[in-house]
Design a protein around this nucleic acid. Structure first.
Ligand code: MN
Ligand code: MN
Ligand code: ZN
Ligand code: ZN
Lengths: 147, 147
DNA sequence: TCAGCTAATGCAACAGTGTAGCGTTTAATG
DNA sequence: CATTAAACGCTACACTGTTGCATTAGCTGA
């Protein structure tokens, strides 16, 4: 009925991409939209459980796969070799990531545009460069209040 | 008996680190020393099989773990979320890596020292930065000869 | 509104990677 | 050689992710 040129709800986003608006799919996208960090399959499943959204393990995997295919989400492998998912906010998904070595959380540094000066050895041709900064996140490096 | 200040064989290297010189351990280190690229557990196992070195899956895992603990090897997770191992050649193991998107091989760019200009958001503190360059390796980007 | 189509689901089974326990072997030391 | 603990070999298990297939349930068009 209404134009979907600028979808704002998760349901709208899903429909705009020609997907069926199902319970699990909506809930998964909602979880991703609400998260500040990329989340693993397991973390998303846990979030759904807390919200009382019944779901199947495989269906969750397939929905995450679908979201990535549609360009709604993107995924990256963390240091623990587990996929982590987040909604694509910037049109350019070529951004750096930050891995907190203390709490293990992963952050997208959307605002960060590192300046590279790379001289590749002969024969190598570059498509893209992936930068992961390791260290302590704000929550972990901040001095403990109290105690 | 002899001084082991500059161990050259795999056996010497193992003994110099206080480890027992066992069949599998020597063979694993030999494979790593002979390889130009970081290798996965599976690839190393395959190499041992070809050389007719009988070995146990778990023993191979434990030896790789030991080599990393000793600082003889280092490991990194590839795009397929599988650990890959290589001997540490440079004293500084902070080097960039190259992932070939065509053949999937991983290369250490020991010679490459990228110039970073990173302005981290407030609250983040950096320990190290990890750079993975994606593209085509010399073998894959080279024009096919013949045909 | 509802039938029909098929996308998506739910479930079971499986594959790959890596770890833990534990009794047995064997490399190193003297 | 006898001793001793490091390392081995094997089984069992956990975790992540995939595949097949029958069933369910969104969407569409009449
Ligand atoms: Mn990201
Ligand atoms: Mn390397
Ligand atoms: Zn942290
Ligand atoms: Zn290649």
């Amino acid at each position: 009925m209404t134009a979907l040129s600028d979808p704002h709800t998760s349901s709208d986003m899903i429909a705009a991409h020609g997907g069926r608006v199902t319970r699990t799919r909506v809930a998964v996208l909602d979880v991703l939209l609400a998260s500040q960090q990329p989340l693993s399959h397991d973390e998303i499943g846990e979030a759904l459980r807390k919200e009382g959204v019944p779901h199947d393990r495989v269906t969750l995997y397939r929905n995450l796969e679908w979201l990535v295919e549609q360009g709604i989400a993107h995924r990256m492998a963390g240091d623990d070799r587990v996929w982590r998912f987040s909604v694509v906010t910037t049109s350019e998904h070529e951004h750096a990531h930050f891995h907190c070595d203390r709490c293990g959380q992963l952050f997208c540094l959307d605002a960060l545009t590192p300046a590279f000066a790379i001289a590749l050895p002969n024969g190598y041709s570059m498509n893209r460069a992936e930068l992961i900064v390791h260290g302590a996140c704000p929550g972990c490096s901040a001095p403990k209040s109290g105690t």
